[in-house]
Amino acid sequence: MARQPEVVTTHRKEVGEFLSALLRAAGVTTAELAKATHRDRSSISHICAGRQFPGKAFWQSADAYLGAGGRLVLAYEKAVDVERAERKAELERELFEVRGHGKPAVDPVRIAHE
């Protein structure tokens, strides 16, 4: 599996940290959330640490269970948007190089974040 860009892993970790904070605030254990979301406790721990990043259905379920009012889903969607922008920039760089232009004069990753 290809290594994720640092900005992507940072956003995933931030979403996991937010989940962890919501768990603490609600007084919910990882085991309780695991049962409610049909996962195992270690998966929840990995998600909180940013090492796993499940799909939207998990975040919706966790958001509802924790009463987060859509904030957890919004955090997930922001991380997905960052990942899409990074992937788009990567594909644009590859296309530029395939066309024989060498290195781009402007960094498309920098432009994607402006």
Rank of each mutant, 00 (worst) to 15 (best):
M1S: 13
A2K: 12
R3F: 09
P5D: 03
P5H: 06
E6P: 05
E6C: 02
V8I: 05
H11K: 11
K13E: 14
E14C: 06
E14W: 09
G16V: 05
G16N: 04
E17F: 11
F18A: 07
L19Q: 08
L19H: 13
L19G: 08
A21C: 01
A21P: 01
L23Y: 04
L23I: 02
G27F: 00
V28Q: 05
T30F: 06
A31P: 07
A31K: 15
E32D: 12
L33W: 04
L33D: 02
K35V: 07
K35W: 13
K35S: 14
K35H: 15
H38V: 14
R39K: 12
D40I: 05
D40N: 10
D40C: 07
R41P: 12
H46A: 08
H46C: 14
H46I: 09
H46L: 09
I47F: 04
G50D: 02
G50I: 04
G50E: 04
R51S: 13
P54S: 00
P54A: 00
G55V: 05
A57T: 15
D63G: 02
D63E: 06
Y65K: 05
G67V: 01
G69L: 01
G69F: 00
R71M: 11
L72K: 01
V73E: 15
V73T: 12
V73R: 06
V73N: 06
L74M: 11
A75I: 06
A75V: 04
Y76N: 01
Y76T: 03
E77C: 03
K78N: 10
K78C: 06
V80G: 03
D81E: 13
V82R: 00
V82Q: 00
R84K: 10
R84T: 08
A85H: 03
R87E: 14
R87T: 14
K88N: 09
E90S: 14
L91A: 10
L91S: 09
L91Q: 12
E92D: 13
R93A: 04
E94W: 04
L95Q: 13
E97N: 02
E97P: 06
V98G: 04
R99E: 15
R99Y: 12
G100E: 03
G100K: 05
H101I: 02
H101E: 12
H101M: 11
G102I: 01
K103S: 10
K103D: 13
P104A: 00
P104K: 01
V106E: 11
V106Q: 03
D107S: 01
P108R: 00
R110C: 09
R110Q: 15
I111C: 07
A112S: 15
H113C: 04
E114D: 10
